[in-house]
Amino acid sequence: MMKMDKKNKITNGATYTVLSILGIIWLFPIAWLIMQSFRGEPGAFTKYLIPKIWTLDNYTKLFTETGLFNFPRWFINTAIVAVISCIISTILVLLTSYAFSRLRFKARKPMMNVILVLGMFPGFMSMVAIYHILKAIGLTQSLASLVLVYSGGAAMGYYIAKGFFDTVPRAIDEAAIIDGATKNQVFWHIILPMSKPVVVYTILTSFIAPWVDFIFVSVIMKDNYNNYTVALGLFQMLTRENIQQYFTQFCAGAVLIAIPITLLFIKMQKYYVSGITAGGAKG
């Protein structure tokens, strides 16, 4: 028994050591980015890791020197697109998932198979076609076009939500219908409150995608600076002619753009855990 305990302690110690090393490796780039955002020395590269001059000017200039790089405008654009896309995408995913989970119709499996095949192709393969479609209807270089792009194919990501709805007993739906509830009421007032984990997961993924996307916004917006999002806007600071002067401001912008996602995840994580606990108790 003592040998087993000793062996377990050694194993646990080795595990904690490996995890600690991996944690340091994972946190190092984040720490470096934060330090560079406070660096007062100009230029993109330095021979030392820790800045010799610490300053808040990089953050201040993002909001005061907006002639060339209008970071506040880009931040607002990103927030608008991300929030609206998140709402639309979340509703589409949950409705599609619940329909595939509960309803039985002839085209159900063929539709699921088609969506599965289409989902195997990367989204950027269609960006040229999407651009020409948006151009034909006069929606290029607009925030509305970005919302359409990010939320238009959201329903294709129904797999995880459908898998969760499949675990919810059908008896709950049947009991509610017997009590006089409609299918619409069953979904919104009974199933969704029981499905907090998958709802939170859908919200997070639907928000993060437009918040950090670079490819589609670069194709759709072209040279319309005022409608850039932060991903494309900050990238302009890294061009050959700008990187030496604006690299530390780029780092500051990268830190600021990471804060909302971090806070959202921390806030949602609490509901995620409580949703799992509630779901387990009800199950």
Rank of each mutant, 00 (worst) to 15 (best):
C86P: 03
F75C: 04
T90W: 12
I76F: 13
T64K: 15
P72E: 02
T96V: 07
L62F: 04
K52I: 10
T55V: 13
V81Q: 08
I84R: 11
Y59W: 08
P51Q: 09
T66V: 13
L92W: 07
N77T: 00
F75A: 04
R73M: 04
D57F: 09
W54Y: 12
T66R: 13
F100T: 00
S101N: 05
L68N: 13
S89I: 04
T78D: 01
F71E: 07
W54R: 02
I88V: 14
T66Q: 08
L103F: 15
I76G: 04
I53K: 15
T96D: 05
A82I: 06
I53V: 13
N58V: 01
G67L: 03
K61T: 06
S85A: 09
L92V: 03
D57M: 13
T96N: 11
L103W: 11
Y98A: 08
N70H: 12
R73I: 02
N58L: 11
I84D: 12
R102F: 04
R73L: 03
K61N: 14
F75Q: 02
I87A: 13
F63W: 12
D57L: 13
S89Y: 05
G67Y: 05
A82D: 06
R102N: 05
G67I: 01
Y98W: 15
I88F: 14
K61E: 12
T78K: 03
T55S: 15
R104K: 08
T66N: 09
N70Q: 10
L92A: 12
N77I: 00
T64L: 13
W54K: 02
T90C: 10
P51W: 07
I50E: 11
T96S: 15
T60E: 14
I91E: 10
G67F: 04
I87H: 10
N58I: 00
E65A: 15
P72M: 08
S85Y: 01
L56T: 01
K52D: 13
W54E: 07
R104N: 11
F69V: 02
F69C: 07
I88L: 15
I53D: 13
C86L: 07
S85T: 11
W54L: 13
S97K: 00
F75L: 13
E65D: 15
T60K: 15
V83Q: 05
N70A: 09
T90H: 12
K52P: 02
L62I: 02
L56A: 14
I87Q: 09
S101Y: 03
A82G: 07
L94V: 00
K61Q: 13
S97M: 03
V81F: 05
R102Y: 07
T66Y: 09
K61R: 13
F71N: 05
L68G: 10
F75Y: 15
L95V: 09
E65N: 14
R104D: 14
T66F: 08
Y98V: 02
L94W: 01
N77L: 01
